[in-house]
Simulated scan of single mutants.
Amino acid sequence: MRRTLFLVIAACVLLVLILPMVVLNIWRTPRVSIKTAGPGIRVKMHDTGKVVVMPLEEYLVGVVAAEMPALFHEEALKAQAVAARTYTLKKLSSSVNSTHHPGADVCTDPNHCQAWLSPLAMRRRWGLVQYWSYHDKIVSAVKETDGMVATYRGKLIEPVYHSTSGGRTEASSEVWKYSFPYLQSVVCKWDKQSPRYLNTAVMTISQVAQKLNTNLGSVPAASGGAKSLLKVLERTVSGRVKTIRVGDKTYNGTEFRRLLGLSSTYIDWETDGDKITFKTKGYGHGVGLCQYGADGMARQGKSYQDILTYYYRGITVEKYD
């Protein structure tokens, strides 16, 4: 009886004290290591404002974890790793220190640089069990593309990317003021599995007016009512809204999308009384690498080189000198 009681107590001690310590130690220690040699990169943390120096490859693991779903195919993650490395090295090679993050090479604000996750943030996002498989998967993607970048005529490219193209990517000249020969519109037939492929947003006329900071009070009384409120003046080659007239004001497509909080500039709509249902395809600016398209290509057997050279026309995937 005493022996049994002793064994029960010992088992309880093991479960309560020792086992959690073992689990915690496993939780804290990565199973797959990455290269830590070489110069560090100065990263400004968006949440704290602190500048942290870390190895480039460690930084890239955090970027891939933040920018692309970890459940994606390994080749898609490799393509993302190369894009992220190219972006970072291009920043490092610039002689101009950004006014957005003085004293740092990059920041973790996705509105300015690339998003980034710490190991702790990864565990919180994925949970303890999935953290191990996802972390190892991303580390492998970074390691297996070690030093690989995307170049055009010997120079690092602007490796912009977005979530979901909606069937076709956009040329950079249609979204921004600059044009690059490798950022052209291409058909994307692999991103239909994206949860953001089709999106809807319902707003009243007054809500649209408020978001656009314009007066549309007289529109419903006018001929055609809400149907006459919006008129697309020009679409891009890919079919996205380039310029649109709302009431007596004209907006470019990206501004219109931003002000209304829509998923993309692939915009159509239906009206019902004073309500407008916006229907959009895709998610993001649509230029460059389509992430869900990359995953779809990878699942059809395409390599990360195939993916990158498809979305970035005329580039070379090579080792960085």
Rank of each mutant, 00 (worst) to 15 (best):
L260A: 11
D274K: 05
G38N: 12
N111C: 09
I26Q: 07
F72L: 05
Y266F: 13
V246Q: 02
R235T: 14
T145H: 13
S33L: 09
R196Y: 15
T316S: 12
R245P: 11
E170R: 01
Y292S: 11
A79P: 00
W132H: 14
Y312G: 10
T243N: 08
R28I: 07
V82N: 01
A150I: 09
E174M: 04
K275D: 00
K143R: 11
W27E: 13
D105T: 13
R258F: 02
T108V: 12
V237P: 05
T214W: 06
K90R: 15
D248P: 02
S263D: 06
F278V: 10
A121N: 11
A11V: 13
S218G: 03
V96I: 15
Q193Y: 10
Y266D: 07
K281F: 00
D268E: 05
P181G: 12
S218V: 13
G314V: 05
G154T: 05
E318H: 03
W126M: 01
G49P: 12
Y266M: 07
M45P: 01
Y87H: 14
F278K: 01
T108W: 09
T36W: 04
G62R: 09
L128P: 10
T36C: 02
V287L: 13
P102I: 14
K91H: 13
Q130D: 12
Y182G: 01
R3C: 03
K281Y: 00
R258K: 11
V142F: 06
I205A: 06
Q184N: 08
R245F: 09
G239N: 10
R2C: 00
R196W: 05
R245L: 03
Y197V: 03
S133H: 14
L128G: 05
R313M: 02
Y87T: 07
G296N: 11
T29V: 12
T265L: 06
L19C: 12
P20I: 05
C107Q: 09
K192E: 15
S206F: 04
L230P: 03
A11Y: 13
R313T: 05
A222N: 12
G273E: 08
K242S: 02
A298W: 06
G296F: 10
A10K: 06
E170W: 04
Q300M: 09
A65N: 13
D136Q: 10
D47A: 15
V202P: 02
T200A: 04
S118K: 02
M1T: 10
A83E: 05
Y312N: 03
Y182E: 09
Q291A: 05
S185R: 05
I276K: 04
A37C: 00
R3D: 06
Y59E: 10
N213G: 14
A298C: 06
R168M: 14
I267L: 04
P30T: 05
I34Y: 15
Y134L: 00
T316N: 12
N25S: 13
I315C: 06
I244Q: 07
C290E: 03
N215P: 07
Q80N: 00
G38S: 06
T243G: 02
D191E: 13
I315M: 07
H285C: 05
V246L: 10
T108Q: 08
Y182M: 10
I34G: 12
A10I: 08
T169Y: 04
P20H: 02
G314S: 03
S303Q: 01
N213H: 14
W176P: 11
P110Y: 12
D268Y: 01
N111S: 15
M68F: 01
A298F: 06
R235N: 11
